[in-house]
Design a protein around this nucleic acid. Structure first.
Lengths: 194, 194
DNA sequence: CTTTTTGAACTGACTGGTCAGTGCAAAAAG
DNA sequence: CTTTTTGCACTGACCAGTCAGTTCAAAAAG
């Protein structure tokens, strides 16, 4: 990657970060392109040089964030036996959300909203993230570590959603609480699967 | 209640319903007052005759919805022994969300959003709903039905959040699934507390 | 040189909120 | 009873402001 490409990548990264924070706080519609440019320390023209539109910036940002999460999931369960794998997923999700708190908030806000332009994108991304979880849960069922009457897709979706709310609730309303505590509570709740 | 008062109450009700649906679908900022008036079959001015502003309409609507839910909670656990009470809460929440699906979606989208004008209202309402759950959970701990090392507030918050995501996810992505199934899955997940 | 960024000006569509005016049910008057 | 008056509830055109997106000349960076 040469200097120009790197420079441009940096700019895009700054725009992602600015947009994620603002949209998490205010929502998509309430966030203006001028706001984003201002927070990213970039001229408005630069936004439109790097992205086709406000909408596309947002969609790319969604893809980027979810891919990062699923990559983390895959890495976390790599070579782990089913018994420990689900626990690793929970831990990974918690750490991811602590690190990318704004993105998690944004995802929580938009995930179950229908009738928006990016809804299809979101369905795909949800499928992607839950898919990784489902693989692990399925392995657990196959190995007998999890009850075989468990509906894998429902359980995986629930696991994903539960981690999301509990973690975001933690960061918003009880940020002083250590991550181990939250992990403990979460695992206590999902005892049956995790 | 005379004719005028009834008429006005009807109008407010229609406005609530229109606003809830639209905001659940599109978000607060993306929903225009014109949209709301149109769907409620009412002139724009009527919105401002009945509510001080778009913001206040939304806040009243939040209060209205959450009060309905907490009232349902209270009624559901009335006179029930702790062992059955938590299950009753879950069932009630599920039924409420099926009945007022749009409101639940809206709550899920806005609940953890900071820096919005209505954030304080939301904190209060969250406190109210979780408070009722906490009373029940506390009774369970006192009676020995629940482990006494359980952090009541965290568990209650988690319970509330979990019910919300699982139920909304059900309605959005698997609406054909019967409520008993979902109740079963949910209770399987929260085995330890519910 | 080329690529990327700047920054300011501009447009046209849209939005929250306002307000003078209308219709009608119920109360008051006869 | 009928007629008149009142004022609540509602209307919809209108206004001032805002925002996404465009344009472009010029500068910075590599």
């Amino acid at each position: 990657m040469d200097g120009r490409t790197r420079r441009r990548a940096d700019t895009k990264q700054r725009l992602y970060e600015a947009a994620v924070e603002l949209i998490a706080e205010q929502g998509f519609s309430a966030t203006t392109v001028d706001d984003i440019a201002l927070r990213a320390n970039v001229a408005k023209g630069t936004v439109y040089y790097n992205f086709k539109s406000k909408n596309e910036l947002f969609e790319e940002l969604l893809r980027h964030g979810v891919e990062l999460l699923t990559a983390g999931f895959r890495e976390a369960v790599e070579g782990l036996p089913p018994r420990e794998a689900v626990g690793a997923l929970i831990r990974t999700q918690l750490e991811y959300i602590r690190r990318y708190r704004a993105f998690a908030q944004l995802l929580l806000s938009e995930m179950w909203r229908t009738n928006r332009e990016w809804h299809q994108t979101l369905i795909l991304l949800r499928e992607q993230a839950i898919g990784v979880i489902a693989e692990t849960v399925q392995a657990g069922v196959d190995s007998g570590d999890l009850p075989d009457d468990l509906d894998v897709r429902v359980a995986s979706a629930a696991l994903f959603g539960v981690g999301l709310v509990v973690a975001v609730d933690w960061l918003v309303f009880q940020p002083e609480r250590p991550i181990e505590d939250v992990e403990e509570s979460l695992k206590a709740i999902v005892r049956r699967v995790g």
